[in-house]
Simulated assay, not measured.
Amino acid sequence: AWEKRKLLEISKTYSGLTYHPEDIRESGTFVIRSSNVQNGSIVTADDVYVSPDIVNSSNVLKGDVIVVVRNGSRNLIGKHALMIRDMPNTVIGAFMTGIRSAHGPFINALLSTKDFQSEVRKSLGATINQITIRDFKLMSFAVPNSQEVNSIGAIFGMLDNLIAATQHKIDALEQVKETLSKNLFDQLWRFKEYSTSWKENKLKDIVSAYSGGTPSANIRTYYGGHIPFIRSAEIHSSTTALTLTQEGLKNSSAKLVKTGDILYALYGANSGDVDRSKINGAINQAILAMRPSKENDSNFILFQLMRMKNKIVSTYLQGGQGNLSGRIILALNLDMPESTSEQRTIGRSLQLLCELISINQSKYSQLESLKKSLLQNLFV
C-alpha cells in the first residue's frame, strides 16, 4: 500500500547561486535558469556563464530535479526537469531549487502530477510568485515502497530519455532543413546533374491565385454545414473551428480550395505563414490560395515562400502592424531553375525532410500522451 510521506523525507533540497551582472562571463560556470528548463528538459536558451570564483553553491548532479521556484509568471512556478547527464561546472540560479534523491526519476515524475500542482497553488500567495524551502517541507504525497519507487522511476526515466532524444532529433532535422534550404535557394549548392542557370519569375506569372470571403455571421443558416471554413490561423491544421453550408458558400465570396493547394496567410498574427491545405474546404479573405502551373513545382514554390517569410514581414509589416495583400505577394520575384526537374528535386528533398520531422513530432506527441496517461494512472 502507498503511504503519505513528506517530500523531504525521501529527498533533500539545495539553493541556487545569487550573482550580479558584473559576474557574467562569455565562458565559465554555467547557470541553469528558468529559460533553460523547457518541456521537462534542460536546454540551451540565452545561456549565462559566471566567473567560477564567485560560485558558492552546489554543482548539479545527474539525477537531480531542477525546479523553478520564483518567476514573474505564476504559470511557470513548479516547472522542472530531471538532470539526465552529468554537467560539470554547472549550478542553478537563485530562482531555482535543486532536489536531490536516490530516486530522482520518481521525484521528477511526482512533480509532474496534479498533486504537486495542487501543492504549488496552495503555497503561492496572493501577490508573491514563489515557493520556498519551507513550502517544500510541508508537501506530502502518497509514495509506494522502495521497490515500486525504483520501478516507477525507471519507467519514467526511460520515457523522459526517449522524449528528450526525440526532441533532439526534431531540432537536428529542423537545422538540416534550414541549412539545406538556405544553400539550395542561394544556389551555393547544386545537385550535380544540373548546371543550367536560374531565372527570376514574378509569382503571378507562375501560379493562379485567389482569395476568399466571409459569409455574414448574422445569418445562422450560412454556418454549421459540411464545408470546413479555413481561416488564416488554421492553414497548418486539418480541422477548422467553423463550417459552412452550401447556402453560406453560395451567398458569400468564400472560395473552395483542394487538399494540396498552397495557402498564404495575409492577415492576423501569423501573417506570412504558408503551407499546403490539409483538407478540401473554403477560405476567407485573409488567405491567398495558389495553384502553380504545370511547368513549375509546387513544393519548390512553397519552400521558397517559406524561406522568404522574414524578409516579407520585415518589409511590409513594420512593427507587426498592418496586413499583407494578394497584390504584394503575387508581385514577389522568385529565383527558380529553368529546369522543372531541378525544381522537383529540390522541392522533393525538402518535402522528405518535412515528412521526417512530422513523423518524429507525432512520435513525440505519442510519448507525451503515454507519459500523461501513466502519471494519471500510476499516481493515485
Rank of each mutant, 00 (worst) to 15 (best):
E368L: 15
K250L: 13
L138M: 05
G347W: 14
L180P: 11
E355W: 00
N377G: 03
D275S: 13
L138A: 04
P88Q: 01
S41T: 03
E22Q: 09
P144K: 12
R307D: 07
K122A: 06
R33V: 01
D86T: 07
Q187A: 13
S195W: 10
G153L: 11
D135E: 11
G157D: 02
T243F: 04
A289E: 02
G28A: 14
S51M: 08
D273K: 09
T166E: 05
V257Y: 02
W2V: 08
S208Y: 15
Q366K: 11
M87L: 13
P228Y: 12
T345H: 12
F300M: 08
E174G: 01
N296M: 02
N108W: 02
G320D: 08
T239G: 10
H226M: 14
K202Q: 07
E119R: 03
R100G: 06
D186R: 09
A1K: 12
E193G: 07
A142G: 15
T132F: 15
P52T: 11
S197G: 08
K182M: 11
I346T: 03
F156N: 06
R190W: 04
A241K: 08
N56A: 02
I92A: 10
G322C: 09
K122H: 10
S211P: 00
T214F: 10
G319A: 03
Q351H: 10
L352K: 10
T13V: 11
I66W: 14
A142D: 13
